[in-house]
């Protein structure tokens, strides 16, 4: 039941100020601007009185109902925010469409897209945010779920200090089933590196791809042997090379738990920082090279002086011979 083209266009282009009123609970929301649109719906920033919320509209009753089920389950998980919290579900009798449009209202998470954040603040944030992400994934996996459609667009960096939150739960699947929704670039099946069964290693592959794609300048497109291509991207990037072992292990599906990948990532980061500090502490090597270079220069000057003296003496000798 994908959205038909026309109704999707209409839903995606609701003018700011449009008021959406639910027919079951009667609450109204005034749309402020569009936050994003995906395969099965569109999300707007809206306000209800003074409260800012995110409203997801779709003409696909089924997928919207499935998503709400997941958000409700997440709400029951104590002590960790796995996704945005669900506030309300209702239907809107819109003046534009003859049919009613279902929607749900959730917490508005203010923040920046994952990839944009790293581009603005620097690559050194990538492993930090990854470790946070792996903690959230670990919790999600312990609850028996797999996030599925893990990609930078579904991650938001929020607050100060910055922390990562999961956004779109449309791909979230019970472990052991087939992953509901995915994006080719982050899907191990597309890269020929595994099945689409929902298991923790599926998310960990995508996590590695999130790190690779957000640190790699150009767009990635699969050509031929997927694994070899990804490894060469890692090896040619000076930053990613430091995490080669962790990334390779995740791409090959050799991590069973997010916590294990987090531990290795942490180890690789601290190994790298201590190596850099050592290098800074030993400055003598570079000055030694400079001394050598200066010595070489002096040698060249000496050669030129001797050559000039010899030429002068030879010229004097010829002049003396001619004068005789």
């Amino acid at each position: 039941m994908a959205m038909s083209h026309t109704s999707k266009n209409r839903l995606c282009n609701l003018p700011p100020g449009t008021v959406i009123t639910g027919k079951w609970h009667g609450r109204s929301y005034r749309l402020l601007r569009r936050l994003g649109s995906g395969a099965n719906g569109v999300v707007y920033l809206a306000e209800n009185g003074r409260t800012r919320v995110a409203v997801k509209l779709s003409d696909d009753y089924a997928s919207l109902a499935s998503e709400m089920n997941i958000l409700r389950r997440f709400a029951k998980v104590q002590g960790a925010a796995l996704g945005p919290s669900l506030l309300e579900a209702d239907d809107w009798q819109s003046p534009f469409a003859r049919e009613t449009i279902p929607f749900y209202v959730m917490e508005y998470i203010e923040g920046e897209n994952f990839a944009a954040f790293i581009r603005r603040r620097g690559k050194e944030w990538a492993p930090v945010l990854m470790m946070q992400l792996l903690s959230v994934l670990d919790r999600l996996h312990q609850e028996g779920w797999v996030f599925g459609d893990l990609k930078p667009d579904n991650l938001i960096v929020t607050g100060s200090p910055p922390s990562v939150r999961l956004l779109d739960v449309g791909g979230t699947t019970l472990q052991g089933r087939a992953v509901k929704e995915f994006t080719e670039l982050y899907d191990r099946g597309y890269w020929g590196l595994g099945s689409r069964k929902a298991e923790p290693s599926y998310d960990l592959f995508a996590a590695a791809m999130v790190m690779i794609s957000s640190c790699c300048p150009g767009p990635i497109e699969k050509k031929g042997d997927g694994r070899a291509q990804l490894l060469s991207i890692i090896e040619t990037d000076r930053f990613l090379t430091r995490y080669k072992e962790v990334l390779q292990k995740a791409l090959d599906g050799r991590y069973r738990k997010a916590a294990d990948m987090r531990r290795d990532l942490l180890a690789a980061s601290s190994r790298h920082t201590s190596a850099e500090n050592e290098r800074k502490a030993v400055p003598s090597r570079r000055s030694g090279r400079q001394v050598k270079r200066r010595r070489q220069a002096r040698g060249i000057v000496e050669t030129v002086v001797i050559a000039a003296a010899l030429l002068g003496a030879y010229a004097f000798y010829i002049y003396w011979q001619l004068a005789m």
Binding site: W24, Y61, N69, P102
Partner: peptide
């Protein structure tokens, strides 16, 4: 499905 209240659809 459409005629059920949103909470029952789930």
């Amino acid at each position: 499905l459409e005629d059920l209240p949103p909470d029952k659809r789930g």
